[in-house]
Measured scan of single mutants.
Amino acid sequence: EVTIKANLIFANGSTQTAEFKGTFEKATSEAYAYADTLKKDNGEYTVDVADKGYTLNAKFAG
């Protein structure tokens, strides 16, 4: 089991951190699915991958 950390950075400057656990593939998929649920209210996002894929920095356009 691994933990994927998602740093969510919103256009207004606020941030949120979420963690997803499971296999690498499952946890990564859940992190992206969570970011997708936030698109409606926060706009499209881009992701910078860090820490060999164990940290995802998602920046929302607003």
Rank of each mutant, 00 (worst) to 15 (best):
T46F: 10
F24T: 04
G13F: 04
D51N: 06
A35G: 02
F20G: 02
G53K: 01
K59E: 08
G22P: 02
N42G: 07
I9L: 10
T28W: 15
G62R: 06
N42S: 08
N57F: 09
V2G: 03
F60Q: 04
I4G: 00
N42V: 05
T17A: 08
A27G: 03
N57Q: 06
A6V: 15
T3P: 03
N7M: 09
K40R: 12
Y45C: 03
V47A: 06
T46W: 10
S29E: 14
F20H: 02
E44I: 09
Y32T: 05
T28M: 13
D36E: 13
S29P: 02
T23A: 07
L56S: 04
D51W: 00
E1Q: 13
V47G: 02
G53S: 04
K59C: 11
G43H: 01
G62N: 08
K26V: 12
A11R: 08
F10I: 03
Y34K: 03
A35N: 04
L56H: 03
N42M: 13
D36V: 02
V47H: 03
K52M: 13
A35K: 00
T3E: 04
V49R: 06
T37Q: 13
K39S: 11
Y45P: 03
A33I: 08
E19T: 12
E25I: 09
T28V: 13
G22H: 01
Y34Q: 02
A27F: 01
E19G: 04
K40Y: 11
D48W: 11
A18L: 15
S29W: 11
A11Q: 09
S14C: 15
D41G: 09
S29V: 10
F60C: 04
K26Q: 14
K21H: 14
V47K: 03
N42H: 15
Q16R: 13
G62H: 07
D51L: 00
N12R: 04
L56G: 04
F20W: 05
A50D: 10
K59M: 12
A31Y: 03
D41M: 13
A31F: 15
S14K: 13
A6M: 15
N7C: 13
G13V: 03
G62A: 07
T28L: 14
T23L: 09
T3A: 06
K52H: 15
K5V: 14
I9P: 01
T15E: 08
T37E: 12
I4M: 02
